[in-house]
Amino acid sequence: MEYFLSLPKDCLSEIFSLTSPKDAGRSSLVSRGFKSIAESDVVWENFLPCDYQQIINISESFLVYSSKKELYFSLCKSPILLDGNKLSFSLDNKTGKKCFMVAPKQLAFSWDPTSRYWGLSYYPESRFSEVAYFPGFRWLDIQGKIASQMLSKQTAYTVYLVFKLAPDAFDGLEIGTSVVRFVNREAEERRKARRIGLLNAQRRDDEWMEIEMGKFFNDAGEDGDVEALLMEIRRRFGIGSLLVQGVEFRPE
């Protein structure tokens, strides 16, 4: 018996919606009939975050898509900008969970007062078209935060600093201290601070570098702001430039 033909279309869409974007993508190869369901908007609507429409509505970025599946992959590949370019939004490819990057103008920096002036510079290779540019410094602290209710619920997040080192006169970054915590639980989470090796930075697909600042679990999104701090980033001789694209909150 051809069960596929006897099963109501609603049941099949329901079943696909409960698999994953990857499973649905592969199901297109099963047959023409399967493909029409596996690519339907009903199914892909379920893979998108439930508040995706609100997020798109407040974005300044221009989005063109002909189906929910196309929208899903567009949001995975090309982040959109929100809130006057203070934040970027994208989706995690595998799970469809929400990923945000806080722009340099929303980050707080403190640095060695004897260092040369730093500032926001135009930089076309950044998604925000600008970076925080540090021409030279002996030490630097970076703080970024986001409201936990914006993030996907019941999800483990990792926070990264996304940066580049100018190739000129590079003298290496040294160990810093990082902490990721809920602001309203600051006291109890102070001990979470840990030393991180800045030499362990990874190269990203977009050619930027990233370094892990820490992890947290977003339960119901009712814990207020989450802040990520990276303190005492040191440069041995205080020369060479650092470019910061942002602080990214990404599902694990």
Binding site: Y3, F4, V30, S31, F34
Partner: peptide, 13 residues
Amino acid sequence: PEAVRKIFHINCD
């Protein structure tokens, strides 16, 4: 996809 075809008794078209 091959396994899914067999499970749902579908011929690839």
